[in-house]
Design a protein around this nucleic acid. Sequence first.
DNA 1: AGAAGCATGTAATGAGTTACATGATTTG
DNA 2: CAAATCATGTAACTCATTACATGCTTCT
Lengths: 177, 177
Amino acid sequence: MSLRYALLGLLTDRSASGYDLSRAFDRGLGRYAWHAQHNQIYQELNRLAADGLTEVVEEGARGRKTYAITDAGRADLLDWLRRRPARAVVRNEWMLRLFLMSALDPEETRQILVDFADQMDRELAELTTLLATDTEFSDHPQSFGTIAAHFGQRMYPAMRDWARDEVGRIDRSRPPG
Amino acid sequence: MSLRYALLGLLTDRSASGYDLSRAFDRGLGRYAWHAQHNQIYQELNRLAADGLTEVVEEGARGRKTYAITDAGRADLLDWLRRRPARAVVRNEWMLRLFLMSALDPEETRQILVDFADQMDRELAELTTLLATDTEFSDHPQSFGTIAAHFGQRMYPAMRDWARDEVGRIDRSRPPG
DNA sequence: AGAAGCATGTAATGAGTTACATGATTTG
DNA sequence: CAAATCATGTAACTCATTACATGCTTCT
């Protein structure tokens, strides 16, 4: 059901097409909070419209359909946000890999950590560039995309630093070369 | 497929029953990396055994079956660990709720962020105490649990700082009182 | 004897992935 | 006019959840 609320949440910000929402997932929400692919998004949008939680407010070029959230949709979202589940679902494939990585030998583990740290640096650089150049963020400082970007600015350095800490620990316990 | 590797990873550490593994998920892995329920775990264990990646090494009281990883299972796990997906699946219902929170009014949003930041501080304090007192960490510096603890030491402050940043942004855009 | 915890499972349904499929519009 | 990007979908399959179902063992 979470995908449904992710979509309603994004549509609270502004009306959008399935394509727009798919891009929003790729950039922000999907990286940190909830991953979904375009086909699943389109299917869920059709179901939301059928349930009266969203409606098509515009049809543009190339079959583009712009969806808006309805009052019923807004009510449903607020209801969900105010409920506190005892146990929430967490699935993070990267985290799982990093947890299980010590099944490999120290050399290989070290390389994975070094690569991971480098990737976090690249993601951070990409995000910083995006924040500096895309007017989306200055125009909508309260939007989910902006919030996600700020979250990324805190998370990427933290994950990079953790990985480099671990590399240091491996090197100290088993000096290389 | 990730559940399959999560189970193989845990069985690399030591042999265990479905019940043991289910508890391991509830305590650790499921909180940070990969969530799964008992019935899914039992089903996957049966499939793993059918595929020759694990085997039943002991049958105890109350139908208890202890599984061990086989050589084929170990090979499969290492193979998976060495593959690097371009972008891995992330699903975190708590994170999603935090991102969508601004659909509520600023007052409610602010309170949730303040509570979240405080909770991160508490988790960090608890973890720091645990790292200083529990010999588990000094005795097994390379273990799964130690790696996770170090990860927490970097993540909790990052999430706390992000939440406090957001509180600051809310206050600046709509001063309280 | 009763409660708490141990231990495993099935069936139906819903969520999510993979592969396939198509075509329009804009940009260089 | 070719390439990139926009834009939406279906079908078959696998993964995951919910509800149901059973019985044993240990502790008090």
